[in-house]
Design a protein around this nucleic acid. Structure first.
Length: 261
DNA sequence: AGGTATGTTAATTG
DNA sequence: GCAATTAACATACC
């Protein structure tokens, strides 16, 4: 689930549910996900505080507290938030925030590859993690500048969070499909016009996905996202979709529409 | 048993 | 500094 559009959906969910209420307690059910803190430290940092605002950078959800410290949530390969009023918690809940109104917010991460930490804010996180600009907020000029000296494959470059933050395996494939570019093509092979088209494809794919609630099933009919799997065909030309490994990850693309030049 | 899954990091080599 | 490769991490499913 958690690439940029999914995290944006979670950010909106957090904003709509868990702001402005004092945190009564924090229960860490599995401290594997904590980074740079521990259950006691997290509890002391949050107890009695209120969450006041949310932000997002790439795949990171950031939440500002009333003392201007920030909570950072990253969801790894599996992850979700669940706000509820009841006892117990969803399966695979790793951290549970309990509010004074007796509601709870569960940070759920089945595979425990997510990360929960404290930070001084978005800028501090970008600095400490050496993240590239947010894929949806970067300007064309910024993108052009960043890609200027790169030589790597398009797929690898788009997925590298240190270069551009937010695209993961699924959306990197979708962007390249929409831009009709081969995932193995390298950045330095693109003309200025092609780079511009790639930028536009990133913006369009992410905006469309967010606009549809980041639910893969609701994406446009002609998107590649529906054709990830063996023996599927291209929604544009009917050719068989190919699967290759790039960066140890399955990469799907249409050999006809996305042929190399 | 082995491969796969929407993620990140470190080590190694060129 | 950049790029590619490999391994590791944790867990469920086919």
């Amino acid at each position: 689930m958690p690439e940029l559009p999914d995290v944006e959906a979670m950010r909106r969910y957090f904003s709509a549910t868990a702001l402005h209420q004092p945190v009564e307690a924090v229960t860490v059910q599995d401290d594997y996900v904590l980074r740079g803190t521990n259950p006691g430290g997290l509890g002391r940092a949050l107890a009695g505080r209120r969450f006041e605002a949310t932000d997002r950078h790439g795949k990171n959800l950031l939440v500002r507290m009333d003392n201007d410290r920030w909570l950072r949530l990253h969801f790894g390969m599996t992850g979700n938030l669940k706000y509820f009023k009841a006892d117990g918690a969803p399966e695979f809940t790793r951290v549970l925030f309990r509010f004074e109104n007796s509601y709870r917010l569960a940070y759920v991460s089945q595979r425990k590859l997510g990360m929960v930490s404290l930070t001084d804010g978005p800028d501090a996180l970008v600095e400490s993690e050496d993240l590239g600009p947010d894929a949806l907020r970067m300007s064309w000029g910024q993108f052009r500048c960043i890609m200027g000296n790169r030589r790597g494959m398009l797929k690898s470059t788009l997925m590298n969070q240190h270069i551009v933050a937010g695209l993961g395996n699924v959306y990197a494939d979708e962007v390249l499909f929409q831009a009709r570019m081969n995932p193995r093509q390298t950045v330095d092979e693109l003309s200025g016009e092609e780079l511009r088209q790639l930028y536009r494809a990133i913006q369009r794919v992410l905006e469309t996905s967010i606009g549809r609630g980041a639910d893969g099933r609701d994406m446009p009919r002609r998107w590649l996202i529906h054709r990830r799997g063996e023996g599927r065909t291209c929604p544009r030309c009917g050719a068989e979709i190919e699967r290759v490994k790039i960066n140890q990850r399955s990469t799907y693309y249409c050999p006809e529409c996305q042929s190399r030049r």
